[in-house]
Amino acid sequence: MATGFLTPDQAVAAGGRLGDCGAGQLCLWEKPQFKGERLTFELADTDIESCVVLPKGFTADAYANHTGRPVTLYQSAECASTGDFHTHPDGSYTPESAYQVRAFKIWER
């Protein structure tokens, strides 16, 4: 069970594999270790500092942030701070979340 994010070098050094996620994207996988269905959000198509709710029935358990900006991932589907949430820097990988992600916000730098 992972409790935070890893840089690409840390993930590879730990024997993990990185999820495929392009520049300007936030990628979310339904299963740990970047497996299962993947959703990809483009920075160019996503409102900055707005709560983006994942599609009904989809929760993310692994993610990669390549947006060029910090991203907060929320357990709450309303981006509420009553559940778990963490902010991840650009270039970070999380092979296994400590909670099921249901929404996110991309922040200005």
Rank of each mutant, 00 (worst) to 15 (best):
K31M: 09
E42F: 06
T40N: 03
G68R: 07
F85G: 05
T7P: 08
T7V: 06
S92E: 13
Q33H: 00
I106Q: 10
R17M: 14
D61W: 07
A60H: 12
F104E: 10
R109D: 02
T46Y: 04
A23Y: 01
A11R: 09
S92T: 11
A98G: 01
V52H: 14
K105D: 01
A80G: 15
T7D: 00
L43R: 09
E42S: 15
G57N: 05
Y74F: 14
G15H: 07
G19T: 06
P8R: 15
Y63H: 12
F34G: 00
K31E: 05
R38G: 00
F85I: 04
A2K: 02
L43T: 13
L39G: 00
T59P: 00
F41D: 00
L26T: 08
L6Q: 07
A62Q: 10
G22E: 10
D45N: 11
A64K: 08
I106M: 08
G15K: 01
V52F: 10
V71C: 13
G19C: 09
Q75G: 10
A80T: 10
W107R: 05
T94K: 06
L26D: 12
S50T: 08
M1C: 09
T82Y: 11
N65I: 10
D45S: 14
P8I: 13
A11S: 13
E96I: 02
R109A: 02
T82C: 08
A23P: 01
G16F: 02
C21T: 02
F34L: 01
Q100N: 09
H88L: 09
P32T: 03
H86I: 14
A103Q: 05
L28I: 15
F34R: 02
A103S: 14
R17I: 13
E42R: 03
D47W: 01
R17F: 13
A11G: 07
V53C: 05
L54G: 07
G16A: 05
W29L: 00
N65T: 11
F34C: 00
Y99W: 13
G36W: 04
Y99E: 04
T3M: 14
K105C: 00
K105N: 00
V52I: 15
F85E: 11
E42K: 09
G57W: 12
L73P: 04
R69L: 12
E49T: 03
D61Y: 05
G22T: 03
P70I: 08
L18W: 15
D90H: 08
R17H: 15
I48C: 01
T94W: 14
Q33N: 10
C51P: 02
G83N: 12
L28S: 04
W29A: 00
S97I: 08
F5H: 14
E42C: 07
L28Q: 09
L73M: 11
G83E: 14
S97N: 06
A62P: 12
A62H: 10
A11D: 02
V52W: 05
R17C: 06
Y74Q: 06
L26C: 06
S92N: 12
T3H: 12
P32L: 02
A98H: 01
P55S: 11
D45T: 12
I106N: 02
P95W: 09
